[in-house]
Amino acid sequence: MRATMIPGDGDTDSGLRPKTLEDFIGQPRVREQLHLVLSGAMQRGATPDHILLSGPPGLGKTSLAMIIATELGTSLRLTSGPALERAGDLAAMLSNLVEGDVLFIDEIHRMARPAEEMLYLAMEDFRVDVVVGKGPGATSIPLDVAPFTLVGATTRSGALTGPLRDRFGFTAHMDFYEPAELEHVLRRSAAILDVDLQPSAAREIAGRARGTPRIANRLLRRVRDYAEVRSDGTVTLAVARAALRVYDVDEAGLDRLDRSVLAALVRSFGGGPVGVGTLAVAVGEESGTVEEVCEPFLVRAGMIARTPRGRVATAAGWHHLGLTPPEGLVYGGIEVRPAD
């Protein structure tokens, strides 16, 4: 078995990653599907089909790529879509692959078009055409590529071009975790980090982790710091709540920026509708940060809604700030009613 190459996320993050499909918590349907894809290929002695992992950030796509390489007993080569600016960058990586290797491309939807077009041929025929020279004297040299399995990860599957998406033999759609699954994740992480985590504290942290294992583990490390510095090291319910208060994570999982966006929408703009650019100026952030970091969770939590006229605060958003929404007022076609 060749050594698996892992990304440099730091010893702590790498140590928390599951090593096998059996160790991977949550995503039962994806785990079953992957098991069938990998086991079938190994029984045939063939290279598995290319795999696309799709879903929001922090759900374990990189961990699954590492697990795929481990289950196959091969090496994992890692890169990202933004790093592949030229076709030559991809050609150099492909030419160094050994038969059976797993090539993981994170944020594959952000690949440059020349590299993506080269990848088509490599995925289908395991060869690439390298163009040498320019103009009328340019020559295309075909290079064979060792059979490999491409694992692509994307948070925006809709941004993938049709030809690229069609070349994946299996697409795994990953969903947000339930609080009970996150509690399991936290108990496992606490055991690895040697943290005395009480069940009630695990439940509290899981409820504020936005359905995302990465956030749950991040909060656990911060609560551990608080417990070690300001308590006896044991993470109790009271310690967890006090720590999360220090780090500005409220009961619903909103952080300082989330609450600023929601408060600006309600207090400064009467609940909306308002454009995301105007909302970003009101909180002193880039519009991309508001749209990509804050808005998805606020929408999923049912506190704001997108309408053709702009963003509006829902009844749940008003009540989260301790305010009562105006009765019978319609924002962008959405009637706002007090919560029951």
Rank of each mutant, 00 (worst) to 15 (best):
R214E: 11
L220P: 14
T171R: 03
R86H: 11
L150D: 02
R167N: 12
V131M: 02
E181R: 04
G211R: 05
R221P: 00
I215C: 02
V151Y: 07
G137T: 08
G169Q: 10
A159P: 11
D101M: 02
A206K: 04
K134W: 10
M111S: 04
E124A: 10
P163T: 08
A122F: 12
A122M: 14
S200F: 05
D144I: 00
R165V: 15
V128H: 07
S157Y: 00
M123T: 04
P199F: 08
E204D: 02
L193M: 12
A172T: 14
L84A: 03
E204N: 03
S95T: 13
A209W: 00
A159C: 11
R167K: 09
G207W: 05
L103R: 06
R210Q: 10
I205Y: 07
S189N: 04
R77N: 12
S200K: 12
G137W: 00
L121M: 15
P199G: 10
V131E: 03
N96P: 06
F148M: 03
R221S: 10
D125S: 11
D89H: 14
E85S: 09
R127M: 09
V151L: 01
L220E: 13
F176P: 07
F170E: 09
A112K: 08
L193F: 08
A206R: 02
T149K: 00
P147G: 08
K134Y: 07
E181F: 06
R214W: 11
R127V: 03
D144K: 11
V195W: 02
T139D: 12
L90D: 03
G81A: 03
E99C: 13
A92C: 00
L78R: 07
R165D: 10
V102Q: 05
A146V: 00
S140G: 07
E178D: 13
T139Q: 15
